[in-house]
């Protein structure tokens, strides 16, 4: 059990690290392709394409980690005025809603990946990229998000602080 837990954390943080590397890659790729172009040479179209894909990958790869960090903003209209007991119930209910939504998206995301493989779909841009290589992050990311929201349903801690603002 301890190993499973540690492996899970490694996956969660590893995905966030990958997202961070992709963010830095955005800068590197744009600078390189502009400089190469201005030297009169031909930058590969992969530079451009990789930035577009990186936007998609990094958003989904980092999203579960951000749930754990409580970094997804919400409006504290109701949560800041409720007494602690009511807040406890509401907050766990909201987290459960998030689990359901992420669960549905993970399940349908998996369907989408299988469909992409079955149909051998390609994403058609400067290159033809097999679609499943991209959509595969849907089931992974939304599953992990469901687990992370799940921790706020049953865990010791709840999602909402009851105070206005994010506590860091």
């Amino acid at each position: 059990m301890r190993y499973a837990q540690r492996g899970y954390l490694l996956l969660l943080n590893g995905m966030a690290l990958l997202a961070a590397i992709m963010l830095v890659w955005l800068m590197v790729a744009v600078v390189l392709s502009v400089v190469i172009r201005n030297l009169g040479l031909q930058p590969s179209a992969w530079f451009f394409l990789s930035t577009e894909y990186a936007m998609f990958y990094l958003t989904l790869l980092g999203a579960p980690w951000l749930v754990r960090q409580k970094g997804h903003v919400h409006i504290e209209l109701l949560t800041s005025v409720l007494p602690p007991a009511a807040l406890n119930i509401l907050s766990r209910g909201v987290s459960l809603l998030c689990v359901v939504v992420c669960g549905v998206l993970a399940w349908k995301g998996l369907d989408l990946v299988l469909l992409n493989i079955e149909r051998t779909d390609y994403d058609v841009r400067a290159f033809f990229v097999p679609k499943w290589i991209l959509t595969i992050v849907f089931p992974i990311s939304f599953s992990l998000m469901a687990i992370e929201f799940g921790r706020f349903v049953v865990g010791h801690e709840i999602l909402h602080s009851g105070e206005a603002g994010i506590k860091e």
Binding site: R37, Q42, P43, S44, A45, F47, F48, L49, V124, A126
Partner: peptide, 21 residues
């Protein structure tokens, strides 16, 4: 300027890499 429709032509005929924008 790159465009998926004619990129193949330009690369083959002129040996140039079109610019993605």
């Amino acid at each position: 300027r790159s465009n998926p429709v004619y990129d193949a032509f330009f690369q083959d005929y002129l040996g140039a890499q079109p610019i993605s924008l």
